[in-house]
Each structure stands twice: as C-alpha cells, then as structure tokens.
Write a protein that binds this DNA or RNA. Structure first.
Length: 425
DNA sequence: TCTGGGGTCCTAGGACCC
DNA sequence: TCTGGGGTCCTAGGACCC
C-alpha cells in the first residue's frame, strides 16, 4: 500500500506559522521576481484566483479583499519542508521525498481494514501538524498514481484530509466527478487529446483499452492507465538519482535588446551556475545558453521565439571564469539584434562528480587548477560575508538591472538566519 | 525500373511534474 | 509598465558505423 502525504497550500501555510494572525486571512505567495501567483490559502482559492495569475492583474482584488501578499522565501520553505519530511520519516522508513511539499510512503498493512487505515492516516496527520504547524493531507492506495488521486480527493472532494482507494472501480460516483486533468501525468495536451475522444472524467478513463492507450499515448500513457486501474508500475525511488542537468534562468522585468546587457546577465547566470555546481560537487563539460523573445509581444523579425547555442568546454569545469567565457562565446553565436528578449538562461548538461575530472590531453591544466583553488576561496568568503562579496568584475550589476530578483514582500528567514529570528515583545 | 538491414549515439523538441 | 524557475522522461530523426 502506498501513501502520499502532501502539505496543504504549503508556502502559504509556512508564512502563517510565524504570523498566526493571518490564519483567518487570505494569503498568497508570488513566484520569483514577484511575477505571478504560486501558492494560495483557501480563502484566495475561493476568490477564484488561479495559480499562475500575474500579480499586476489582481492588484485590485488584493486591495479589495485585503489579501496578504508574500514574495517566495525559499530558505524558510526549504527548512520547514526538511522538518516535515523528517517527521514523516519517523512514521515510515520507506519514504520518498518527491517534492518540496510531498512525500510517498509505503506501508505493509494492505490487509488492514479501512477503519484502521483511516485511523493511522489521521494519527500521522495530527502528529505532523502538532510538531510543525503545517496542515497535511494523506491518500492511501495500491499504486502511486492512485495515492496521488486519493490525496486530491481528501483535499478537494471529501475534505476529510485522509482518503483511501482500494479499488477505483468501487468508487464509481467519485470517479465520475473527477476531471481527467487531476490524474498525475495528464497535462494540458493530453487533456485536450482525451477530450477529442470524448473522455472527460476519471471514470471514462478507467474504461479505456490498454492497447489503444498505448498507441495514442505511448509507453507513459500505458503505465499511467495501468497504475490508475490499480496495477503498480512504479516503485518508491529510494536513492535520489544525482541530477543530470542544472539550469539558471531569469525573466527580465522589461524587454532587452542590447548585447551588452545580455553579456552582463550571462556573467551573472554563469556565476550562479558555478556556485551551484560547486555546492553539489559537480562539474560540467558542456553547456547551452538560450534566449526567449517576449511571447506576449513578439517583435522578432522572423517570428521565431527560441534561440539556443550549445558549447563544449575545453575541460569539464565548475570554474566561474571559464563558464562566463563559454557562455559569452555561445551568446555571441546565437544573438542577433532587433529582437526583444524577455527571458534567458544557461543550462549545464551531463553533470559529473568533480573528483573524476578528465583533463584534456593537450590542455595545460595548471591555470585551471589555480582557478579552482580561487573558486574555493571565493565560496568561503561569500559564505561568511554574504553572497556577492567577491566575484568577477564581469558580473557587476549596472544600475538599471533587469534580471535581479525582485522580492518586495519577502518575510524574514525565521528559521535559518540569526538576524531574522522571530522576536517576542 | 532496380538501390540492405540493423545498430548506436546525439540533439531538438514535446510532454509532464512541482 | 507588470506574465516564474527548475527539473525529468520520451520520441523522432539525422549522422554514422558495419
């Protein structure tokens, strides 16, 4: 039996812990850059504000309903997440942390009665809530996909906080009320395609023939359908596979046309990328830069939106100056003037652990090693005195920067910064 | 007119997730 | 004026090999 535990309105709940007076008020959290809504308390959901809504579109609603707005505070959310996961791990050794606010668990008590299972779910839920102040919901089922669905039901349909699915075919009424898009693995494209075949509800999905599904939706689709019918195709992923790609990207607050401005941005992205690589003790042998033209106002002469350039590094590396050079080289190859760029970024592929660095036969590695030492010292200084204390001059930010994070409404980092501890008067 | 068959590796792009 | 950021997996198609 699988279980999925999911924190309710996670970011909004985190903000409420340290501001108890907000418990009865509508709260929403904005994305990086304060661009759009990424988390909402139930009160905000009831006002009909969807996730992904741009902030500027709802400024009036915010004022009218006195909605409390926060910028994303990932230090706080990451720390609260670790606490929740730790508590869940105490309840069940078979735990897979799936995202910042969700974890799968596996239990052996399949044969337990529904009543016992429900009791167990309520107990775990109460335990986590008491220890952290974060409300959670739990769904139980024989497959991960069904556990996800059970969790959704416990939140949105029955609103009991715990729901169990032994066999989806036994819950016909419920399955007829749930839209296919609630199923894990069905996004907007699959929803549209299913709709073309007249399939709108989970119940209709359950009637589909597997052969036909395989033909239309390939192997992922087949796996999804089997899981939905109660045949397990996915297991817990015990060791987090080391990541394969790393991205640093940012949307500009206004359109950018000039190469000079992009070079400044890419020097900063490459700096972030280097820090991130070194933090995870990884190096990359290749990277690509990408540029996106503003989709809401495409002035690109040929209408194209996406431009990217792949580049190989002479030596696999995590050294900031080498990354900046490579990024600039790639940038100069895919930049062309006259386009209004809105977002861009840099992506590292095929990461490898830094201790297996393969030095190029013909490259003189001394300079590379020197730089590597310099990077280690730079990281130490920045860790102690704050990010950006030292760095490459290329990454200096001119006055009118358009990519630095905007966070007008960030709450204090209550749990991870001594200077921002909660004070009680 | 007729022009093999089967691999592997790589990249781009589409789909999904949070 | 203002529309996020960071991931994974899969497939199709081209280059190249024997």
């Amino acid at each position: 039996m699988f279980a999925l535990a999911d924190c309710n309105n996670f970011y909004a709940s985190c903000e409420r812990i340290f501001r108890p007076e907000l418990r009865s008020r509508p709260v929403l959290v904005l994305s990086n850059n304060d661009g759009c809504v990424v988390a909402r308390s139930n009160e905000v959901k009831q006002l009909g504000i969807a996730n992904g809504t741009p902030h500027w579109q709802i400024k009036e609603l915010i004022a009218k309903h006195k909605i409390v707005v926060f910028s994303s505070n990932y230090q706080l959310y990451g720390d609260m997440s670790a606490r929740v996961m730790d508590l869940l791990g105490q309840q069940c050794a078979d735990l897979e942390v799936y995202s910042i606010d969700e974890a799968f668990m596996r239990f052996d008590f399949y044969r337990q009665t529904q009543q016992k299972l429900e009791q167990e779910g309520k107990r775990i839920k109460g335990f986590v809530e008491q220890c952290t102040g974060i409300p959670i919901s739990i769904g139980f089922a024989p497959t991960k996909t069904l556990a996800k669905l059970a969790n959704h039901i416990s939140k949105k349909v029955t609103a009991t906080g715990v729901h169990i699915i032994y066999d989806p075919f036994e819950q016909e009424d419920l399955m007829k009320r749930i839209d296919v898009s609630e199923v894990w693995g069905i996004g907007s494209a699959y929803k549209r395609k299913l709709s073309d075949y007249g399939i709108e509800t989970v119940w209709q999905l359950l009637q589909c023939r597997e052969q036909w599904f395989y033909k239309e939706f390939t192997i992922q689709g087949l796996r999804l359908l089997k899981e939905l019918k109660g045949i397990p195709c996915m297991d817990l992923e015990d060791s987090p596979t080391s990541r394969q790609n790393m991205v640093v990207s940012r949307a500009f607050r206004r359109d950018v046309y000039a190469l000079e401005e992009l070079r400044e941005a890419f020097a900063n992205f490459a700096t972030r990328l280097g820090e991130k690589l070194r933090r995870y003790r990884q190096i990359t042998s290749s990277l690509s830069v990408f540029l996106l033209v503003n989709p809401y106002n495409n002035k690109s002469p040929d209408g194209r939106r996406y431009f990217s350039q792949f580049i190989q590094l002479p030596i696999a590396s995590s050294n900031t100056p080498e990354l900046i050079n490579a990024a600039w080289k790639a940038l100069s190859l895919c930049f062309s003037s006259g386009r209004n760029y809105k977002k861009c970024g840099i992506m590292a592929y095929g990461l490898q652990p830094e201790d297996v660095v393969q030095l190029s036969l013909f490259e003189e590695p001394e300079q590379h090693l020197k730089t590597r030492k310099l990077m280690a010292i730079t990281d130490k200084i920045n860790a102690r005195f704050g990010n950006g204390t030292v760095g490459c001059a290329a990454a200096l930010i001119s006055k009118d920067n358009k990519w630095q994070r905007l966070e007008q409404f960030r709450s204090p980092r209550y749990t991870t910064s001594w200077l921002e501890l909660l004070r009680i008067k």
